[in-house]
Structure formats: C-alpha cells, structure tokens
Amino acid sequence: MNRVLVTGGSSGLGDALVRQLLASGHQVLRTDVAAEGPDDTPYLQLDVRSAADWDKAAAWCSEHWGGLDLLINNAGIATGGRIDVESLAAWDRVVDINLMGVVRGCRAFAPMFKDQRSGHIVNTASAAGLVHPPMMSSYNTVKAGVVALSETLSHELHPYGVTVSVVCPSFFKTNLADSIQGDDAEMNSVARRLIEKSPRTADGIAKVVLEGIRKQQFLIIPDRPALMAWRTKRFARPLYDRQMRKIARRARERAEGSV
C-alpha cells in the first residue's frame, strides 16, 4: 500500500486519480486550495504557490504516515494567448502555479525521499510540454519547464532510489476551462472549446496514468492525439511545422477579419 499526496485533488484529473488510488487500496491525502475537501478522504488545504503550505504538507505526511511514497504534483490552470496580447500579469500567474508550484512540491519532499532512499514524484505537464502550438506561449513554456524539471530530477534523485514520471496528456474533458483568465478572449474561447468538446475523460486519462506510474515510466503520454503529435514532431518535423504554421495562419486571418 502506497502513501500518496495529490495536489489539485478535488476536481478534474486530480479527483480521478484520488478516487482510483483509493479504490486500489492506497492511502491518499487529497490537497487543494479550498478550505475543505469534497468528501471524507484525508484532506489538507494546500496552495501550491505557498512554500509554507508545502512545509505543512510534508510535516503532515511525517506525522501521520512516517513518510510518503508517491507525490503527484497535479495542480494547475489553463492559460494561453498571443504573445502581444496576453499580459505579463497572466504570465506571472501561470508561472507561479504551473511551474513554480511543481518546483515547490519537489523541493518540499526531496529531503524526505532522500532520507527514505525511496519515493516516486509524478509531475503533471501536458502535451504542450512536448509540442508547442502557436498562441499558447505561456502554457507551452511552463509545461515544457515541467518536463525539463522532471527529466533533471530523474537523474539527480536516482542515486537516492527516487524515481520520477512526467504526464503529458492532450485536451480532455474537465473543469480546467474554468481556470482560464487573461486578455486574449479569442484564444481563451478556442481553448475552452477544445477542453469541453474533447471525447476523452479525466477517468480514462487517470487509468492510463496510474498504469504508467505502476510501471515507473518516465514519460507518460496517456492518449493517442498527444502521442501522435509528439511522434510527428520527432520523426516528421517538416509536416509538424506545416501543421503549426497552418494554425497560426488561420489565427491571423481571423484576427484580420479575412474569414
């Protein structure tokens, strides 16, 4: 039985992961920014922007469980926009949550995992961390940063018996669209449609993610669209570039009122 902490655990993929982990018999600490959890699962309020909250989470795991086996850094928000439209304040917000939130979590639990000589860190990135569509500069950047951080830690922590995975799904149906803020209303609308109309569900993604964790895979790409996009970039770069530029050209045409 693993001792597991999940951030962003009250909704979307985080909630799906918590429910499936509990069903498999694991001990789970659900964390999120709200003051109270959605059910009677052990819950801790944790704002990933707060180093103090992270320290409290590590202390809770030490006090109640004597350590932790699996840290799932899942909390995040959706964002995006054209480089000259999205504000710097929006950039600051997504960097603080989606990238630095993961950094803080890894920093908070690395000493515990090193002392234990065991542990598994799972960081939720996105297909946007591997392939980089236009009009998504801030989101692509932070998710690519999560991939880079994960790879770095997979090597850095290996001598201590600590493993790392990074999760890179494409759009799936979730309430993530509710977190979209920013100045580029047109791009926000596109992102919302892609999330809400996806045929993929959080439960389906969570099932594949947990199987990847069980196998200790580093790169977990849990759906076919994300996998195909990544393979196209790696093995058919001219085709990938044409697809990305086609998306950008259509966006320009919409912006200029050509279509």
Rank of each mutant, 00 (worst) to 15 (best):
Val4Thr: 06
Asp241Phe: 04
Lys233Gly: 08
Asp115Pro: 02
Cys61Leu: 11
Ala185Tyr: 03
Leu157Ala: 03
Gly14Arg: 02
Lys173Leu: 04
Pro159Asp: 00
Val18Gln: 02
Ala16Gly: 12
Ser150Cys: 06
Ser24Lys: 13
Ile97Phe: 08
Leu21Met: 12
Ala177Lys: 12
Asp223Val: 01
Thr152Cys: 14
Trp65Val: 08
Asn98Met: 03
Leu29Asn: 05
Gly8Asn: 03
Ile205Thr: 15
Ser24Trp: 11
Ala35Cys: 03
Glu156Ala: 09
His155Val: 01
His132Cys: 10
Trp60Glu: 08
Leu44His: 03
Ser258Asn: 11
Gly37Ile: 14
Leu194Ser: 01
Cys168Gln: 03
Leu70Phe: 13
Ala75His: 06
Thr141Ile: 06
Ala35Asp: 10
Trp54Pro: 01
Ala75Asp: 09
Met100Thr: 10
Asp15Ala: 15
Lys56Ala: 14
Pro225His: 14
Asp84Phe: 05
Pro169Gly: 13
Cys168Arg: 09
Arg82Gln: 08
Met135Ser: 13
Ala90Asn: 11
Asp203Tyr: 00
Gly101Met: 04
Leu194Ala: 06
Gly9Pro: 04
Asp55Glu: 15
Thr163Ser: 15
Lys233Arg: 15
Lys173Phe: 01
Asn98Asp: 07
Thr7Val: 07
Pro111Asp: 05
Met135Trp: 14
Arg104Ser: 01
Leu149Ser: 04
Lys207Asp: 07
Ala16Lys: 03
Gly119Lys: 03
Ser179Trp: 11
Ala236Gly: 00
Ile97Cys: 03
Ala110Ser: 14
Val164Glu: 01
Arg231Tyr: 15
Gly80Trp: 00
Asp47Val: 00
Gly145Ser: 07
Thr31Ala: 07
Gly66Lys: 06
Asp84Ala: 09
Ile97Glu: 11
Val33Asn: 00
Ala108Leu: 09
His26Gly: 02
Arg3Phe: 12
Glu156Val: 02
Phe172Gln: 07
Trp60Val: 01
Val94Trp: 05
Cys61Tyr: 00
Val18Met: 02
Ile195Trp: 00
Tyr43Phe: 10
Ile83Tyr: 14
Leu176Ala: 13
Ser165Gln: 03
Leu22Phe: 13
Gly66Ala: 08
Leu239Ser: 02
Arg214Lys: 10
Pro169Gln: 08
Glu63Val: 05
Ala110Glu: 15
Leu88Asn: 10
Val6Thr: 12
Met228Tyr: 14
Thr163Pro: 10
Gly212Tyr: 00
Arg249Trp: 13
Thr31Ile: 05
Thr7Lys: 00
Val190Asn: 06
Lys173Pro: 02
Val122His: 02
Ser154Glu: 05
Ala226Thr: 09
Ser50Glu: 12
Pro159Gly: 09
Pro222Ser: 12
His132Ser: 15
Cys168Ala: 06
Ser87Val: 05
Ala185Asn: 07
Ala90Arg: 06
Pro134His: 11
Trp60Ala: 01
Leu71Ile: 14
Ala191Gly: 07
Leu210Trp: 02
Val48Phe: 10
Asp184Trp: 11
Glu253Tyr: 14
His26Gln: 09
Ala75Thr: 05
Tyr160Asn: 06
Ala110Tyr: 01
Arg250Pro: 02
Asp53Trp: 10
His26Asn: 05
Ala110Asn: 07
Ser189Gln: 12
Ala75Glu: 08
Asn175Arg: 13
Leu239Met: 11
Ala51Asn: 12
Asn73Phe: 14
Leu210Phe: 05
Ile97Val: 13
Cys106Asn: 13
Asp223Ile: 03
Gln45Ser: 08
Ser170Ala: 14
Asn175Ile: 08
Thr31Gln: 04
Leu210His: 08
Ala125Tyr: 00
Thr141Gly: 12
Arg82Leu: 09
Asp203Leu: 04
